[in-house]
C-alpha cells in the first residue's frame, strides 16, 4: 500500500509516496537525493548521515514513515549554505575517495551549528567525539579533524 509522507527536504516542502516499511535512505535516493550514500547499510559507517529535525541520524536505519512532518537536511543543503566548511575540507585534503564525504559534511555542519550556538572554541576531542559515527577509510581522520577545526575557528572569528 502506498502512503503519503510529508517532509521538508533541504528547505523544500515535499510529499513522498512510499511503500509501507520503506527505508528513508531508499526514499531519499529515489527522489533525487543521490548525495546521500549507502555504505554499510547497518548504521555503522555514517555515509548515509542526514540531519533530522537538527539531529544527525543514519538514514539506513529509519523507516520513511517515521519521519512524517520532519525537517531533513542532506549534504546538498550544506554545500549551498556552508561553503566555508566545504572549502576547508577541500583545502585540507580531507576528501580522497569521497564516499564518506556527504555524511562527514552533514555531521560536521551539525557540530559547527551546535558550537556557534554555544560560542566556544571547538577542541579536537569534541570533534572526534562528534565525528565518531563517520568512518573514513582513506584519510586517517587527521585531515578531516583539522578541516573542521579550521572551519570552526573561521566561523568563530566571523561571529
Amino acid at each position: 500500500m502506498k502512503v503519503d509522507v510529508h517532509v521538508t527536504v533541504n528547505g523544500r516542502p515535499t510529499i513522498w509516496q512510499v511503500e509501507d516499511g520503506e527505508r528513508l535512505l531508499d526514499t531519499l535516493r529515489k527522489n533525487g537525493h543521490t548525495e546521500v550514500k549507502e555504505g554499510c547499510g547497518g548504521g555503522e559507517c555514517g555515509a548515509c548521515t542526514v540531519a533530522l529535525n537538527g539531529e544527525i541520524i543514519c538514514s539506513c536505519c529509519a523507516f520513511t514513515q517515521q519521519v512524517e512532518g520532519a525537517d531533513i537536511v542532506t549534504a546538498a543543503w550544506v554545500a549551498e549554505h556552508n561553503p566555508a566548511l566545504i572549502d576547508s575540507l577541500v583545502n585540507h585534503n580531507a576528501v580522497q575517495c569521497g564516499f564518506c564525504t556527504p555524511g562527514v559534511v552533514v555531521a560536521a555542519d551539525n557540530l559547527l551549528k551546535k558550537c556557534t550556538c554555544n560560542r566556544h572554541k571547538l577542541g579536537t576531542k569534541e570533534i572526534k567525539d562528534n565525528m565518531e559515527g563517520n568512518i573514513c577509510r582513506c584519510t586517517g581522520y587527521i585531515k578531516i579533524i583539522e578541516a573542521i577545526a579550521a572551519a570552526a575557528e573561521e566561523e568563530r572569528h566571523e561571529v
Partner: peptide, 9 residues
C-alpha cells in the same frame, strides 16, 4: 551506546 547518529535514535 553506538555513535551520535545511533544515540539520537
Amino acid at each position: 551506546v553506538g555513535s551520535p547518529q545511533i544515540r539520537n535514535r
